[in-house]
């Protein structure tokens, strides 16, 4: 399978106060970041970004110098991201608005999807705790299908028998 180059290598770094996003495919090597702040942006180190290398205000200042969307940032306190002025050129709001949508909801906390299928099972998708016959199991980004007609040979899971028994809603 061919890798999608536009997504590979994207990273994020945080010091607890802000998150800096790195999108390597957008970098044109203008070199502001490491000339200004080698303590944080050191291309010879791995990871190349050390968020402990400078105070937050200085990191923001230097990220704002990046002429591309390779380096962008946001406050971790989502409230603060709502009032960003235009001088904060590299805030994700201006450079990578697609990230703002993602961070609005905390990733990994999407609601579980529960779908009651027409004349069929209950299909549950997401991250949840499943309790069945005294067993408790955490399921991460999983999918299960629960029998609703009572005719399955695989109870509590659906095995498709609802069609044979003519179960209708």
């Amino acid at each position: 399978m061919e890798r999608d180059k536009s997504l590979s290598g994207n990273r994020e770094y945080t010091n607890g106060e802000i998150t800096v996003y790195w999108k390597p495919v957008a970098c044109v090597h203008a070199s502001y970041c490491y000339r200004e702040l080698i303590e944080v942006f050191d291309p010879s180190s791995r990871p190349w970004v050390d968020m402990k290398g400078a105070p937050t205000a200085r990191i923001i200042e230097v990220v704002n110098m990046c002429p591309t969307e390779a380096l962008t940032w946001k406050w971790n306190d989502e409230e603060k991201n709502t009032a960003i002025d235009i001088n904060q050129t590299n805030h994700i709001k201006f450079r990578r608005p697609e990230l703002l949508k993602e961070t609005g909801k905390n990733r990994g906390e999407e609601p579980v999807s529960v779908k009651v299928m027409i004349d069929g099972p209950i299909v549950i998708k997401g991250s949840f705790t499943l309790v069945s016959k005294g067993n408790t199991k955490d399921i991460k980004q999983g999918l299960i299908s629960i029998c609703r007609c009572g005719a399955s040979d695989q109870l509590p899971f659906c095995d498709g028998r609802h069609r044979k028994v003519g179960y209708t809603d």
Binding site: G108, E110, I122, F128, V131, S132, Q141
Partner: peptide, 18 residues
């Protein structure tokens, strides 16, 4: 980062409680 968001409980001889 992924935390369980809901509890899905299948009660014996009973309903599915979410």
């Amino acid at each position: 980062k992924i935390k369980p968001q809901a509890v899905i409980e299948i009660l014996d001889d009973g309903p599915l409680v979410i």
